[in-house]
Design a protein around this nucleic acid. Structure first.
Lengths: 140, 140
DNA sequence: AGAAATTTGTCCGTATGTATC
DNA sequence: AGATACATACGGACAAATTTC
């Protein structure tokens, strides 16, 4: 079997499917998710891929896992707003300084900067994008 | 070879070792870590285990990974309040959405966005520049 | 411009360890 | 003790992004 992940990797698709079940109440708060081996059968994915999907949900605090017991849907459901689906994704990359940034940092145009971008989503829609720029080496 | 992980799993021990190198400056801020394959050779662990260790460091924001490039030691210094001689200038203006922002906000390229820029200076030198983007019409 | 090499990303299958039921 | 379920670890294969030649 090859490894085709066109557009979106499988573990993310699986995580989205499970997220849907949790948010829709198909899997109620506090209930156990299907076991990893049940999920491998259902999605016909390897256990590693299933675990990657669950890791995503765990990072988003949507589930909690206990060693020999299983993975639970999180029982707490109150994250500021009524729906609690606001989330932040962060990414870091290197960019070249544009003229304005170069002037601010007192470096030459094109100098490498670190850009950290945070995207805040609420109800699926992007609320705000925050980009933070720093020098590669903080010469303090 | 069995899988003995008495007390502490291997991936955590490896992560601790790498963390030490970063915090001690053996791997300076912004520098590339050894490649995954180099680390498999050094620690004689499988690539999966190495990747698990790096994932721990990434969660702790100690490193950042870029596809095809490598994993960098994070260039931050802890934002201590020891000094107090830092100040922030803020400015707001209207900009056109570049392709990336347009995609995030699900609008057309060139759509007007509000950009708020904060420049933090310490001892005269710019420490970081933060740009926050929002839609003009907040449907909130 | 394009091909090759490098490096991280995804996915599979298997085996064994450890905690819980 | 036995069965079940998650945790750790290995090895291999191919995909995708980047860099190098």
């Amino acid at each position: 079997m090859p490894t085709p992940h066109y557009g979106q990797p499988r573990y993310r698709a699986i995580a989205d499917e499970l997220r849907g079940r949790i948010e829709s109440g198909t899997i109620p708060p506090g209930a156990l998710l299907p076991t990893e081996s049940a999920l491998t059968a259902e999605f016909r994915a390897s256990r590693g891929t299933i675990r990657q999907a669950i890791a995503l949900l765990r990072e988003a605090r949507l589930v909690a896992t206990e060693h020999g017991r299983g993975t639970y849907a999180s029982p707490w459901r109150h994250e500021g707003s009524s729906d609690g689906s606001s989330r932040t994704e962060t990414r870091q990359r290197q960019v070249d300084a544009d003229p304005e940034l170069a002037a601010l940092f007192a470096v030459e145009v094109g100098t490498a900067l670190v850009e950290q971008q945070s995207v805040t989503r609420a109800r699926g829609a992007v609320g705000e994008v925050i980009r933070t720029y720093r020098l590669l080496r903080a010469e303090q």
